[in-house]
Simulated scan of single mutants.
Amino acid sequence: MSALLQVDGIECRYDQLVITQDISFALNQGDICCLLGPSGCGKTTLLRTIAGFDQVYAGQIKLNGELISSPSMMLQPEQRQVGMVFQDYALFPHLSIADNIGFGLRKLSDSDKKKRVHEMLELVNMQELAERYPHELSGGQQQRVALARALAPRPQLILLDEPFSNLDFELRKHLGLEVRRILKALNISAVLVTHDQTEAFAMADYVGVLNQGRLQQWDTPFNLYHEPRNRFVANFVGQGYFVPGVLKEHHKVETEVGLFEGNRAYPWPEGTEVDVLLRPDDIIENPQGHIKATVEQHTFAGSATLYRLRLPSGQIVESMFNSHAEYSIGEQVCIEMKADHLILFKKDESCASLAR
């Protein structure tokens, strides 16, 4: 089965400034993907290129097997069967909610248009608000209207440009799951742009991590967290710190916090200096533990507290403790390591690939 969206070797430029380079990925029908990365990494430019707002300098984009962008041609946005949901919603203030949703349905008869608008209102659970105007709605309601309007023409693909960034955390989380449910119910593929990895992991089947215009890794959220391809992905996805160590065997490494024996083997010779990625769930509180760390900072998060700890060498790590455990800044706490899934990088390689 061929991919619905195929992006091959895309390079985007503004004048002579290179924004993205050699980006390739594919998206199947019904899949939701997220372009994740820091500000300025090129993710919005890439989304605009897929939408047809920006020309590609090199490479090509195909939608359902049809070429829609290359250096020599660019199918106009309205001809692409692609829906777009913008960060600022872009609703028409002088039109009712029903008229906003039906705006792009000019080719339908009046009866079919009315039926489609009613279907979209039901889909986003806003039947009772059809005659209201955008300024009478909350931010979350406006976002649902924007989604319904983008879905109404039944596009092959939906593009979402940081659609929840103007909403508070709880609403963002709820609406993200609701949007995923709607897209999955309709079997519509989507590309979401965000800098929020929690949002990306909750919504996406696949995540593409970008940095400085290059795609660092395209993978499932699980693999990005547990199998980061390089140091940037390891640092950007999830919380974690690197602790220096020395490889003892292909699956063992000695560090200041003890000997780790993992479930994977690395091809480097014994004695190789490495950095071990330790995430908060790799470090646990243990009153009988042999390692004493000093509390530098703590952040209460309800059921757990995130502690920033300084090891005897001065190395910083983080750990999630049960919220019933209370330690003050400057206090010492006994810990132990429970990392059996080793993620190692060579000391002298800034972007080393993981062993496979």
Results as ranks from 00 to 15, higher is better:
Gly176Met: 08
Arg80Ser: 02
Gly271Pro: 04
Leu186His: 10
Gln6Ala: 13
Asn322Thr: 14
Phe25Thr: 14
Asp88Ala: 09
Ile284Leu: 11
Leu259Cys: 11
Ser72Gln: 07
Ala90Gly: 09
Lys115Met: 15
Arg149Leu: 08
Asn100Cys: 06
Ser39Asn: 13
His94Ala: 06
Cys33Gln: 04
Arg308His: 11
Gly9His: 13
Tyr225Glu: 06
Lys62Met: 10
Glu285Ala: 11
Cys12Gly: 00
His298Trp: 00
Phe232Val: 04
Tyr327Glu: 01
Leu35Trp: 02
Asp348His: 10
Asp22Ile: 04
Gln212Ala: 13
Arg308Met: 09
Leu35Ile: 04
Leu46Ser: 07
Trp218Glu: 09
Tyr327Phe: 14
Asp8Cys: 12
Leu277Pro: 00
Val253Gln: 02
Phe222Glu: 15
Pro221Asn: 12
Gly258Val: 05
Asp348Leu: 07
Leu259Phe: 04
Gln16Trp: 03
His298Ala: 05
Arg106Asp: 10
Gln79Asn: 13
Asp282Tyr: 02
Glu170Phe: 06
Ile329Gly: 02
Ala304Thr: 14
Gln79Val: 00
Glu349Asn: 09
Arg154Tyr: 10
Ser319Met: 01
Glu318Met: 13
Leu63Met: 08
Asp340Leu: 11
Gly213Ile: 11
Ser24Gly: 13
Leu183Ala: 05
Asp275Pro: 05
Pro280Thr: 07
Gly302Ser: 10
Glu331Trp: 12
Asp99His: 13
Lys62Val: 01
Arg172Lys: 14
Ala152Leu: 08
Lys113Val: 05
Pro77Val: 00
Glu261Tyr: 01
Ile283Trp: 03
Val191Gly: 04
Phe25Val: 13
Val333Asp: 09
His341Lys: 01
Glu326His: 15
Arg132Ile: 07
Val18Leu: 11
Tyr57Val: 06
Ala152Phe: 08
Lys252Leu: 13
Tyr57His: 12
Arg132Lys: 11
Gly245Ser: 12
Gln142Gly: 02
Ser24Trp: 12
Leu309Ser: 07
